[in-house]
Design a protein around this nucleic acid. Structure first.
Length: 270
DNA sequence: CGCACCCCCTGCCGGC
DNA sequence: TGCCGGCAGGGGGTGC
């Protein structure tokens, strides 16, 4: 589920609620995430103070004691981070709970267990998520042209490659290409300068609109306070196969590209 | 290099 | 009603 806008919404909530709090205890109920949660995680974090929260692409980092420890968190497909009162009992799929010194707990919940929680070496991003963050300054038409030069790979799979551009997933890439008027299967290296610019502009527009609406909640994404996002009602194409295009008289099509469902309007995307 | 497949895991939905 | 296949916002690996 969570792509850049959803992760940004979670990061903002954590910045507001967790910075300045001390980790009192860490309860690990299920270690088997995408990679095993280290056995010594509680001991590594206990007593440390949260001094910052950052996000790059879909990866969250909780900075403890000014960087003495950095905890990397990834929500995978079905992960959420919720703030709960310490007294509330844990539920099924609540895998890790960080008890804080204000009688609340930050709870990592992830039915599919594709998420990740592990201490990260300071300043060293995980191997994936190294790409340009598309809401930061470096994501420009020139940068996109450089990344795609002479590549035949489709623009959709290029934009979803986290080592090139970090944070876009299947929903937002579909929406961005619809907004930019470009077909997902186009070879990225053959796009014009103007088209690269359209993609960069559309990316900013779509991501900021989604962040403002609190992200998209398709089935299980929730904010740290349990609320749903609202951007799913604004989709131009995602999961709208057979439905009318919102901007022309076309009908949205679905095809599979790189193993993922791909939606586009054949009339206004070229 | 790029893709077509696999895998990981649970939940939900539609068809029978 | 129940079972089964397909699909889902994530990433990683292999082989062609």
């Amino acid at each position: 589920m969570p792509e850049l806008p959803e992760v940004e919404v979670v990061a903002a909530a954590l910045r507001a609620a967790v910075i300045g709090r001390r980790v009192v205890e860490v309860v690990v109920r299920e270690r088997r995430l995408r990679r095993a949660v280290p056995r010594d995680l509680p001991q590594t974090l206990r007593g440390r103070c949260v001094t910052g929260v950052s996000r790059h692409g879909k990866l969250l980092r909780m900075i403890l004691d000014e960087g003495a420890v950095v905890l990397a968190l990834h929500l995978g497909m079905s992960g959420t981070l919720r703030l709960r009162r310490a007294a509330e009992p844990l539920e099924r799929h609540d895998h890790v709970a960080f008890a804080l010194d204000d009688d609340h707990a930050l709870v990592f919940h992830d039915p599919r267990r594709f998420g990740l929680i592990r201490p990260a070496p300071v300043g060293d991003p995980l191997r994936q998520n190294r790409g340009l963050d598309p809401v930061q300054d470096g994501f420009t038409a020139e940068a996109l042209a450089t990344l795609t030069r002479k590549r035949r790979r489709s623009i959709k799979s290029t934009l979803m490659d986290q080592s090139l551009v970090a944070g876009l997933g299947n929903i937002y890439v579909n929406e961005i290409l619809a907004t930019a008027g470009i077909r997902p299967g186009r070879a990225s290296g053959r796009l014009s300068r103007r088209e690269h610019e359209a993609i960069v502009t559309a990316t900013r527009t779509v991501l900021w609109a989604a962040i403002e609406r609190g992200g998209s909640s398709i089935s299980d994404f929730r904010h740290a306070d349990g609320k749903s996002g609202g951007f799913q009602t604004q989709f131009l194409v995602y999961d709208r196969a057979g439905e009318p295009c919102r901007r022309c008289r076309g009908v949205i099509r679905r095809r599979v590209l790189g193993g993922r469902s791909t939606f586009y309007c054949p009339r206004c995307q070229r």
